[in-house]
Design a protein around this nucleic acid. Structure first.
Length: 575
RNA sequence: CGGGAUGUGGCGCAGCUUGGUAGCGCACCUCGCUUGGGACGAGGGGGUCGCACGUUCAAAUCGUGUCAUCCCGACCA
């Protein structure tokens, strides 16, 4: 490729709307162009990167025994009604109508479609197991797209779905995919951590995410992990052992009684007012889960993990209740409390965290303004409690497996694997016939990789102040040859010879034949992130070219022949 | 959905307070000069100032509305 003809516009400045490194770099270096919020054009350089990631994914998926297909992007409502998700998916599902006024949607994921494809094609146990995958654009109408390709609305995803006769088969395929994923990200030049995670709106029981660990702001997930054993989990799923805490307030409260606690609207104010540790307060939070109020109870020094709470009631949408909603709830049950004085009440769904179980002689709100019950015990609450884990793990807590301190870091989720079980096959009546002629729903798994997000994560992990440092395996080109002065015949002759030699050896090479000053060419080469740069300048008069490694900044002189050979060897070794 | 801000050529911005018919840097075209880390000089092309309505002799500028974009929040009582 000749640089003078390459379709790319590098900018002097970072795009003004970019916040994170990958967005800034990809925008400035001319890889992406925004068309609408969360919707980007992949310019030729970007598309080359994406195709490389796709091909690595393809090779490893095929090697793992999966088969590629391509399903429709626009999907009919009927299938989504079969699974029940047309009602529950929410606004992220981009809905539209065709000219006949039929409801359609843009595919945010393809469980419904693949399940319908499978049930038409997989009738017998003899055909199983099967793993089908596709690489395609997805559309999710995110509340707030941001961070460029890291959280776009339209993005490229590889999604795979496995079909087995039983759980044992699924377990095997799950492990098979986990191994394939490790190879994929390794080949892409990314360090990833496989962490336990919540299975979210996709549903199912067990799931893991593959996280690129990053110290940049772009990591949207908190990952807790243990240095002493193999425990690691997304914060939405992490569990922990707690340090010792005061949970019995007998030294503070001799009797059980209602006392005045004026203006204690927060746990902090209340614990200060009563002069007690917050571990002696039972915190009551009102959430709206799938439009219904739920009261969450937890020891007041700890926070609720909303995903866990949502799962505890089997919901798919959760948010904290507004003041108005709380007022409405109070009125309905004959109370008038405001936040700060809320407590458990009859007639409302209550979920209690495990931390509540051991509390004795504690303080709790009783739905009356400026009053709390002190020296209370669980039997005083007047409601039956079921305990579960809805607590957010925090820094300073201990590993649930080995008891050592947990570490926390930020991570970018680039892949995930789920055990779906029969969540979709059952309601959609997707069954096979076993050896005895009986039918059973398939036992399914699903496995996703964000292709475009992986590319952005690679930038987050590999850059410096001058630009991107693409890992060789996914770099748009391997080498750029920079003749310093294109009017110098010798320089151009050598540059052209190397260019031809590298090209015929299968190396992807760019010749910067623009009539620009050397500085401009160097800046662009760094910004775009070519793994190798060969400069043909004055030193060619002594027979040498300059060879520079983007990743390490190493710089050496070689004859053109040596440089060519070294490039071919280095690059072939990685591919 | 709430709060804040911003819409002026491909990109980054000024002009708006105090209305007079649009400007700067980068990018682009031509010529010259230059060629090892984003040179310089001269000339040139490109914009219904987000959109609509209004005020006015006159609106990028003032008013009303609207659309769009960005940021923060949607957080623990």
């Amino acid at each position: 490729m000749k640089m003078s003809k390459m379709f790319v516009q590098t900018l002097r400045e970072f795009p003004s709307d970019a916040e994170v490194i990958s967005h800034k770099m990809l925008g400035r270096a001319g890889f992406i162009k925004k068309l609408a919020p969360g919707v980007y054009t992949y310019q030729p350089l970007m598309w080359k990167v994406l195709k490389k990631i796709e091909n690595i994914v393809r090779e490893e998926m095929d090697r793992a025994g999966a088969q590629e297909l391509l399903m429709p992007f626009v999907q009919p409502k009927e299938l989504w009604e079969e699974s029940g998700r047309w009602e529950v998916y929410g606004k992220e599902l981009m809905r539209l109508k065709d000219r006949h006024d039929r409801d359609m949607c843009l595919g945010p994921t393809h469980e419904e479609i693949i399940t319908s494809v499978a049930r038409d094609g997989l009738k017998s146990y003899k055909q199983l197991p099967v793993n089908l995958y596709q690489i395609q654009s997805k559309f999710r109408d995110e509340i707030r797209p941001r961070y460029g390709l890291l959280r776009g609305r339209e993005f490229i995803m590889k999604d795979a779905y496995s079909f087995d006769v039983d759980e044992a088969g699924l377990d095997k395929e799950y492990e098979n995919m986990a191994q394939a994923y490790k190879r994929i990200f390794e080949r892409c030049g990314l360090d990833t951590k496989m962490v336990q995670s919540d299975s979210g709106a996709i549903g199912g029981s067990v799931s893991h995410e593959f996280m690129v660990i990053t110290d940049t702001d772009a990591g949207e997930n908190d990952v807790f992990y243990c240095n002493d054993c193999d425990y690691s989990a997304n914060s939405n799923h992490a569990v922990s052992n707690l340090p010792e805490a005061v949970v019995d307030g007998k030294d503070y409260f001799k009797e059980t009684k209602v006392i005045d606690t004026p203006n204690t609207h927060s746990i902090e104010e209340l614990s200060e007012f009563l002069n007690i540790p917050s571990t002696l307060i039972l915190k009551s939070l009102v959430y709206i889960i799938d439009k219904k109020p739920v009261i969450a109870l937890i020891r007041a020094d700890k926070a609720v993990e909303e995903t866990k709470l949502m799962n505890a009631v089997g919901g798919i949408d959760i948010r904290i209740a507004s003041s108005a909603e709380i007022a409405e709830l109070m009125a309905k049950h004959g109370f008038d409390a405001v936040p700060g004085f809320i407590g458990p009440m009859k007639g409302v769904k209550i979920i209690a965290d495990n931390t509540v179980k051991d509390m004795k002689n504690f303080v709790v709100g009783i739905n009356q303004i400026d009053k709390h019950l002190v020296g209370a015990n669980l039997s005083d609450l007047g409601v039956e409690l079921n305990y579960t884990d809805i607590r957010l793990v925090e820094r300073g807590e201990y590993c649930p497996q080995c008891g050592k301190p947990l570490q926390v870091t930020k991570g970018i989720e680039v892949g995930n694997i789920f055990k779906l079980g029969t969540k979709y096959s059952k309601p959609m009546n997707a069954v096979y016939t076993d050896i005895n002629g009986k039918t059973h729903p398939y036992v399914m798994g699903c496995y996703g990789i964000g292709i475009s997000r992986t590319a952005a994560a690679a930038v987050e992990a590999h850059y410096d102040e001058h630009g991107i440092k693409w890992p060789i395996a996914i770099a748009p080109y391997h080498v750029i040859i920079v003749p310093v002065n294109i009017k110098d015949e010798l320089q151009m002759k050598v540059a052209n010879e190397m260019y031809d030699a590298l090209k015929s050896a299968g190396i992807e090479v760019v010749l910067d034949d623009r009539d620009e000053r050397a500085g401009v060419k160097f800046k662009d080469a760094d910004l775009i992130g070519f793994p190798y740069r060969v400069t043909v300048g004055k030193t060619i008069n002594e027979g040498f070219v300059e060879f520079k490694v983007r990743e390490t900044d190493e710089q050496e002189k070689y004859t053109p022949e040596e440089a060519t050979e070294k490039l071919i060897n280095n690059i072939k070794a990685v591919l």
